[in-house]
Every structure is written in C-alpha cells, then in structure tokens.
Design a protein around this nucleic acid. Structure first.
Lengths: 297, 297
DNA sequence: GTTTACCATCGATTTTTTCGATTATGGAGG
DNA sequence: CCTCCATAATCGAAAAAATCGATGGTAAAC
C-alpha cells in the first residue's frame, strides 16, 4: 500500500471519476485504473463498484478514505514542519580544554542562555586527542582545541586564531621586572603546568626538547584557575594562554615574564566533523562562539 | 515519500544499522542505502549522520521517526479492520413490486430488524423496467421481480421460484364454485388489475393477446391490498399471485376461479448486479429473504 | 444514428528498484 | 604492524514496476 496509490485513491473518490483524477494528477487514465486495481488486490477488497462506467465507493472504500486522509495529512504535516523555521532548540555537546570551558562559562554562558533558552548545552573537558576521538565517534558535536595548528579533510574548522602564550609569575616575583630573560634563567624554578594531554603543554614540552631542555613541574593540573590561584600566592611559574591570565595581570596579581627565546605557536581552533548535520541550534552556538571568543582581542 | 521507504527508515533507526535492517527486511544493504538516500533527497534533509561507518539519527530523523510510526500504525489499523469480522451494519436499498413490499414488511420486517438492528433498509416499489434501470445505475442494491423469467449476464439471480397466479373473486361470486371455467367466460366481467408496468400484468396481457383477447380493467392500481379489499366487497375479479391472496382465500373472503385455459408463467426473482460489492449486511439480507420468502410454500 | 464520455485491458516503453561486486574506512585481534 | 571483520557508499547490470497509448465495449447525450 504505497502513498502514491492512496493519493490517487483520494482524488478518484473525490472526483468520482478515473478520467478526471487522471487529468488532475497528470496520469493517463489507464494508470489510474491500474493503481486502484493494485490497491484493491493488495487489500483484497473492492473499493469502487463499477456499474455502467460509473464508479461508486463501497463501504470498504469509505473506510479507506478516512485513513487515507489521515495518512496524507501526516505526511504533509511533516513536510510543513521541515520547511517552517523552528524555534532554535536542541541538545549540543561541546568539548573543550578545561581553561576554555572555565573562561566561556564564566564570561558567556548566562548571556547565551538568556538569548537562546531552548538550547541545552553539554560542556565537557578533555585532552586534544580525546576530543578528536569524540568527533570521530560522533560523541561531540563541536570541539575547541588549543594545540598546534591542525588540518584534516574529515574536519571542518569553523574558525581559528593563534593564541598568545606567556610565562607568568606572581607580580612580586624576582623575575617580574627583568627584561630579556632566557628560558634557561627560569627553567630550574618551580613550575606548575597543565597535564601533558593538554595541547599547549605538549607543544611546550616539544619546544623545550628541541633545545634539549626539560621541565619537571612540581604540580600538574588541568584546572588553570587553580594554577593561577597558586601562582598568585607563591613564587611558582607557569606557562599559560593569554586569555587565562590577562585579567589577573591587569589586576596586578600576576605578571608576564619577558622570556625572549621561547616561541611556542598555539592555535585555538573551533572544529566539527565534516559529516555533522548542522542543526539550527548548532549553527547558532558556533556563531555565538565565533563572535564572542574569536573576534575580541 | 513512499511507505516502503518509511518502513525501511523505521527499521534502520531502530537497529542503528543499514546492514542489520537489510537482513531483517530481506533487502541487500545497497538497497537500504538507496532507500534512505531517496528519502533524504526528497525531504531535502539529512536523516542520519554517517561518521566512521556508524549512523546517528539527526534531529530531522528523530522528527520523522514519530511521523513514520504514526503512518505505519494507521495502515496497520486499517488492514486489521479489514480482516476482523464486523458488526453487521450498513444501508441497503431494496426495490420490489408493491405487492412484495407489502407482504415482506407485514410478515418479516419486525423480525429482521430485531435480528439485525444495525442494518438500515430502504424499501422502494417500482415497475420491473424501472427496477432494472435502478440496478444499472447502482441506485438499487437488490431487486425482486415478479415477471417472465429473465436472464442477463450482467445480473446475478440470487434465487428464483415460479409463482402461482390465480383469478380471484369474492367468495360469494357467481363463479365461485364453477369448475373448468374458460377465460372467455369471465373476460367481460369487471376486472381490477395492477398497472401495466407490473411484470405479471404485462405477461397476462401478452397471453391474452395470443388468444386475440383483451381486457379493459375498470381500475388499475399497484396496491394489491386495495385490490383484494375491493374484490372482497364487490363482484369484481382480479388476477393475482398466490402469496397476495392465499390468506384471504383461507379465511373465506376470496375464492380462486377454476380457469383452465389460461396458463401464465410468472417468476419471482431476487436479482442484483454482477458488479455489486457484497457487503456483509447485503449478504445477510439476501440470506434472510431467501430463507423467509423463497423456501416456504 | 452519430458522437461523446467512461472504464477495462493489453502490449510496449520508460522508470524505478534491487542486487552483487567493489571500494574505502576503522576497529579488533594476533 | 598486519590481517580480518564489519560498515556504508558507489556503480553498473538486471529485474521489477509503473506508465502510457491504443483499442474495445457500453451507455448517455445530442
């Protein structure tokens, strides 16, 4: 019982004529005969009485009419639903490093929620490798990486920007006002760094290795807010992205160290899988993030 | 958007796999891919995200699932309705000569209604020719004729029997006890006959014409109950079927005349059009009529 | 009596559906 | 690291289905 035949049946029943239905539907009359016969054979019942070239619905036909209308109405309802702009709603899973999560939630979440109350967001933190794994398994809708610049034809990079990284210490550190420090000047100091899985930590270690240097941090922890808090009240040093530290530096709690022989190139990238279906909610979230996080300095 | 594809879509969504759905439905896997793609192209939206050979329903897919289930449920509901025995109900139009109508309503209608209260019957009276016309225009579901024996490949004769016809007069008529009367003996008497349209009246006239005789009745009327009532209180004669007169004869109101040179062969036939859809109600009515009207003497 | 309108039927053609084989990919197990 | 297995996409061939146009019979209209 295919929909095409049901539609034809409805038209025939309404017009009371195979010929007229054929004209209305753009079929030939023999096609209409065939389609109705097909329905009748499949349902094993007569839908129309044919007496002297005029057709009359049988009881069964009358019953089918109502079902056919309901079925047609459902398909049309669905198609209309597809076309009409929907309220922006849905569930979105975004995965980021801890620092980004922290930053975005603090600065933007309330505003986002107020603007789009029907979008439910799941915020998860993970290492770069895990994030890509989640993209590959369709467990994350979108990720934000802080790592070396990545490119892969399976992914779409919605937006990216290079990230400023700084060595930071307490504002009253002995290195606070020294200019043109070398990495070798500070390498023996006590360091707090994020775990190795975090992208920029890995890039940092790799850069050190190029200079045959190595740091054994006294504390490894993903939570960058903890790191800044500890540094603010001790003589420890860390290496962190600008967006984590700039407010505290501006407030005079922390200071940047002027280490001039250590260039670490870190990119912030907003990435989703190329086969990802872009729901309106997802598009909205991406636009929001791009506006708030990638355009401002 | 054909039903076949929707069914496939439901299976795929439930199993989360094109391959498993193919096995379950007896299709090849490429067919499933094709069907889903066809749906997606027609609806111009992605139903499944394909990431690393695993599929995940998109939001649109989720929406479609619910519609697809509803549509499938409707078609199944209809098919079940078809199969299950229904209460015997419906509207039936039966057309008969006035005499038959009179007889059946008096003797059987109440009983029939009590047995099948959900069947609504429309009883109409008409001439033989009009009755066949009504069959041809699907205006009557079934007719009962009292006429010469008819056969036509377009009609189905559900049942038939020859009818006894009698000349009848008042029980105290001068002809009451005479034996071996000739038609010529009574032809000048005042006759009451049914109209010419009534089948047996026509046959009667035709038989007379064969003998070069002719009757000009003093009253022509379809209502046979009127005829018998008039005869019972006058010296008029009529020519009527047995079932109209036998009770009055038995009651001593009327008597049969022993006219031995006038053989008129009249058949009672229960007829419907060969293309008529036999609803349960119609079958029931036919069986009832056959049982009550054609088997008893 | 001729024309028109209607539906059924048939064979031919076109379109659609289905299949099987192949490819590409990733995961699991050795 | 390699092989085997499972998955879905793709492609061309084959099968099936839908559609058409022509024809026929019948009844109604003119």
């Amino acid at each position: 019982m295919e929909l095409r035949n049901l539609i034809t049946f409805i038209h025939v029943a309404e017009l009371g004529s195979f010929t007229k239905a054929a004209e209305q539907l753009g079929y030939s009359q023999s096609t209409i005969s065939f389609q109705i016969k097909q329905l009748e054979e499949e349902l094993e019942c007569l839908l129309f009485e044919r007496i002297n070239h005029t057709i009359t619905l049988t009881e069964r036909g009358h019953e089918l009419i109502s079902y056919a209308h309901q079925i047609r109405a459902l398909t049309e309802e669905f198609k209309e639903n597809l076309e009409e702009e929907k309220e922006c709603s849905g569930h979105i899973h975004i995965v980021t490093p801890d620092s980004v999560c922290d930053d975005m939630i603090r600065r933007n979440y309330i505003d986002f929620h107020n603007r789009y109350p029907a979008i439910s967001v799941k915020f998860t933190t993970a290492d770069t490798a895990v994030m890509f794994d989640m993209l590959d398994h369709n467990e994350a809708d979108v990720i934000i990486t802080l790592d070396s610049h990545s490119y892969n034809k399976d992914y779409v990079i919605a937006k990216e920007k290079p990230l400023s990284m700084h060595f930071v210490a307490n504002a009253s550190s002995k290195f606070a006002n020294k200019q043109k420090l070398s990495i070798r000047d500070i390498i023996k100091e006590p360091f707090i760094l994020t775990e190795y899985g975090q992208g920029y930590r890995r890039v940092f270690d790799r850069e050190l290795a190029k200079k045959s240097l190595e740091i054994t941090p006294i504390l490894e922890i993903g939570r960058t807010d903890m790191i800044t808090a500890l540094i603010a009240q001790s003589d420890m040093i860390s290496f962190l992205p600008d967006f984590v530290t700039k407010d505290l530096v501006a407030a005079g709690c922390l200071c940047y160290l002027d280490v001039c022989d250590m260039e670490v190139e870190i990119w912030q990238q907003l990435i989703y899988h190329k086969n990802k279906w872009m729901s309106k909610a997802l598009k909205t979230l991406l636009s929001y993030i791009i506006e708030k996080d990638f355009t401002e300095q």
